[in-house]
Design a protein around this nucleic acid. Structure first.
Length: 447
DNA sequence: TCTGGGGTCCTAGGACCC
DNA sequence: TCTGGGGTCCTAGGACCC
């Protein structure tokens, strides 16, 4: 039996969750906003038809929403998480092997289902999920994850398919691939799209037929994997056991700009508290916390400041009080009283990137090496327009799906690096790393 | 002409995802 | 007035070691 994966995703998932609990929202444009009601992160088809884009700042569309009768919701992640669990419970009654890929997407292993029965099963799955949870879904089927994703994209964009698309058949698949832009492929973002277009690659079929070796030069091994996946050769495995989380962050924009140290300290303490909750829930711990805070890149003309500092803890912990002490220390080491116009900070957060299972965290070793925490403070003049958050790994121009503005200046902020030795002696952590044998080929992630 | 060589570890930054 | 909050993986290059 041939390998077959289905990607099932909830349509406009957050909006659909809201609709489950208020049937009057059916047929009405609905959007859900990000934290602080900053921008639109979920839109129903009716809202998309009004021209509302993913990530649109709410203040720019507020008036239009009012005029058009768009129902607007703040996000409610407890609700969405609960609904996600319900949909996955239904998926498991159709396929025992399910990888939960995101809050609204799961891969199902349909390899044991006969090829001619797969579409019917997918239709049954859709209607059952709709009946039992109220959530509308689409299903894409293919021999690899990348093709299942693409099939799901087709299922969503071609209404005649009734929400299900099966790309198992190679000849039929080839017909679809010539008509789809390469930018729709999972893993091809804005930067890769530009490189591919320069190589004369416009459609998914073009990419499938590209020689993998030059592709690797332009797009790294990731691009080479995509090509093999598009040809039906699986490079990405179904991951049934969720991987241990490697990092954890709690960050928030302030609802309004802040200038006072006490307010900042309160905020980072709250973030540290939340961080401790997340770590304890996962049975993880950390021995270093990065604290950052910065002014807004949108406040051109204001004095700008971006701070990121690493605070080392004596031993790995997930204790709230220890984490709060650490982040307050981070603020104490970096806070500056303004000489002139105050810095108006827009966002703060705490990040850990080196989590260990609590059971593995070693006791403080005697005579351990002292380490230094470097405090990076960048001061960028607004008129120069340069801006980044050094040391945080969170450069605005390079991360996430933020940065639609290609003209935004790159990170050229001047860095003043001020090494700071903490009063509390930091300690090196005995290595908890376990050597993992390398896969025979770096291409194949399938086990 | 020519400045050792190779391995590992770590970090910063880029790119992508939802 | 008002522009999200998380994550992952890959590569290059420096530090360090023998």
């Amino acid at each position: 039996m041939s390998r077959a994966l289905a990607l099932v995703d909830g349509n406009s998932f957050y909006c659909s969750c809201e609709r489950v609990f208020d049937p009057r929202l059916a047929g009405v444009p609905v959007i859900v906003l990000s934290n602080n009601d900053g921008c639109a992160i979920a839109r129903t088809a009716e809202a998309k038809a009004l021209g509302i884009k993913m990530g649109d700042p709410y203040f720019k569309i507020r008036e239009m929403c009012r005029r058009q009768g768009v129902r607007v919701f703040s996000s409610n992640y407890a609700l969405y998480g609960d609904m996600s669990a319900r949909t996955n419970a239904v998926y498991r009654t159709f396929a025992p092997d399910v990888e939960i890929y995101s809050i609204d997407e799961s891969f199902l292993d349909l390899s044991d289902v006969r090829e001619r029965d797969r579409v019917a099963l997918a239709r049954d799955l859709r209607s059952t999920v709709r009946r039992w949870t109220g959530i509308p879904t689409c299903v894409g089927i293919g021999p690899t994850k990348t093709l299942a994703k693409l099939a799901n994209h087709i299922a969503k964009s071609v209404p005649e398919l009734g929400g299900v698309c099966d790309l198992s058949d190679e000849a039929e698949r080839a017909l679809w691939l010539v008509g789809i832009s390469v930018g729709e492929v999972w893993g091809v973002g804005r930067a890769s799209l530009a490189k591919l277009q320069a190589l004369g690659v416009d459609t998914v079929a073009d990419l499938r037929d590209l020689d993998p070796r030059p592709a690797r030069k332009a797009l790294t091994v990731v691009g080479e994997r995509i090509i093999h996946e598009l040809r039906g050769r699986a490079c990405l495995a179904l991951e049934l056991v969720p991987a241990r989380r490697k990092g954890c962050a709690v960050t928030r924009s302030f609802s309004s700009r802040i200038t006072e140290r006490a307010v900042l300290e309160q905020a980072v303490a709250a973030h540290a508290t939340r961080l401790g909750e997340k770590l304890r829930r996962d049975g993880q711990a950390t021995d270093q916390v990065t604290v950052f805070y910065h002014t807004s890149e949108h406040d051109r003309g204001d004095p700008m400041r971006s701070v990121s500092t690493v605070v080392h803890l004596p031993e790995a912990t997930n204790d709230t009080l220890a984490l709060i002490r650490a982040v307050r220390l981070g603020v104490a080491r970096t806070w500056r009283e303004p000489a002139g116009a105050p810095w108006r900070y827009s966002k703060a957060g705490v990040i850990t990137t080196d989590l260990v299972p609590l059971s593995e965290s070693p006791r403080t070793p005697l005579g351990a090496l002292e380490r230094e925490a470097a405090v990076h403070v960048s001061v960028a003049r607004a008129r120069r327009g340069a801006w980044c958050r050094p040391g945080s790994g969170l450069c605005q121009s390079g991360r996430g799906r933020r940065r639609p503005d290609a003209t935004r200046p790159r990170c050229t902020a001047r860095l003043d690096t001020v090494p700071t030795v903490l009063a509390q002696p930091p300690f090196a952590r005995a290595s908890a790393r376990i050597a993992v044998p390398r896969a025979p080929s770096d291409l194949l992630l399938v086990r």
